[in-house]
Each structure stands twice: as C-alpha cells, then as structure tokens.
C-alpha cells in the first residue's frame, strides 16, 4: 500500500492511495493519513488506484475525514472503482463524504 500527497491550487491537499486497503494496507497508511488530516483544510482523497477496500480501510478514510471536518474543513473522495464505491455506499459513507469522478467537480466541491 502506497500513499503520497501534494498541495494543489486553492489550498487543496490531494492524498493519493495506491493498493489494497485491507487490514495490512490500512495499517500501512494510517499514520500518514492522520498526519495529513491534522493540518489539511481541504482534503481530496484520491482512490483511483485503490484495488480493494474493507472496513479497516474505511476506518483509515473516515477518521481523518472526521478530523478535517471537525475543524470546519472539507473532504471529498475521488474516482473510486466500481467495487470500492459499492463498499463506500454500503457503509453509507457516500452520504457523508461526497464522491466525485471528475477532478474539476471534486475541486469545486472543496471551494
């Protein structure tokens, strides 16, 4: 499981996840996700390269998102594949963190 981040225009922090967000994958990214969430005000979580998402992986997304939102920030999820999106919807995440498949729309939702 790989994680990288970059600062985009408009004060947006884009964090890209790559790999399987299973128990081991979630453990591998938790610390960095929490560090990023500790300072980000507008967080775009890029799920394009996430091949798998289980409930421990959900936790690795939800807890940082909760931290950002608790400070008045915004979070969006970007481009999950069909199965990952199905997990997000089954867990009800999509009603709390918007999912976008178009980058411009994702960026606009953070403004």
């Amino acid at each position: 499981m790989q994680i990288s981040s970059e600062e985009m225009a408009g004060g947006i922090t884009r964090v890209a996840l790559d790999g399987r967000m299973d128990i081991a994958g979630a453990a591998a990214v938790d610390l960095k996700m929490n560090l990023i969430a500790g300072t980000a005000a507008k967080l775009l979580i890029d799920l394009q390269k996430v091949e798998f998402l289980g409930s421990m992986g959900l936790r690795s997304i939800v807890l940082p998102a909760r931290a950002v939102k608790s400070r008045g920030g915004k979070v969006v999820l970007f481009a999950p594949n069909e199965m990952v999106e199905s997990v997000l919807k089954t867990a009800g995440i999509d009603t709390l963190i918007p999912i976008h498949h178009n980058l411009d729309a994702a960026v606009a939702a953070l403004q």
Binding site: R59, I61, R66, A91
Partner: peptide, 21 residues
Amino acid sequence: APATLAELEPGGQGIRLIRKF
C-alpha cells in the same frame, strides 16, 4: 444511516458488507 461523520462507526460495517457481497 448515520447523519454525520461523528455518528458513523467505521468499524461496525462488517456484517452489512458481508450481507451485501
């Protein structure tokens, strides 16, 4: 359905996911 992220229990989705998949 949880109304806010604060209400969401991220570790409590296992049975729901199994039933779905």
